[in-house]
């Protein structure tokens, strides 16, 4: 069995290099320190998504509407409800 690992409520804010929010982006959790459900997370009109993540290094893969993707690493701390700003190059 795999013990449950607490996941903190995190907010991911995805923007393009020019500062525009990336609405409707799909986000997968590719790597984390504990089990993360195989959901696909989707940003709102302002580029925000809420994701439960375990603490430690997390690798996200962000898919644009055209199907291209970028991977991004974040370090999730113990504090809850933190917003992680992620900037990616336009596809």
């Amino acid at each position: 069995m795999t013990a449950s690992v607490p996941r903190s409520r995190c907010f991911i804010h995805v923007t393009l290099r020019d500062g525009r929010p990336l609405a409707g982006a799909r986000i997968a959790v590719e790597q984390a320190s504990g089990p993360v459900p195989e959901l696909m997370y989707q940003t709102d009109a302002d580029g925000h998504a809420q994701i439960g993540l375990p603490t430690g290094e997390v690798r996200l893969r962000i898919f644009t509407a055209s199907g291209e993707s970028r991977s991004v690493d974040i370090n999730v701390g113990a504090e809850p409800d933190k917003t992680y700003d992620v900037t990616i190059d336009p596809p």
Partner: peptide, 14 residues
């Protein structure tokens, strides 16, 4: 398509 309760506006695919 999973839609959370307001005010949350992001969504999920399952």
């Amino acid at each position: 398509k999973l839609k959370p309760r307001p005010p949350q506006t992001s969504s999920y695919i399952g």
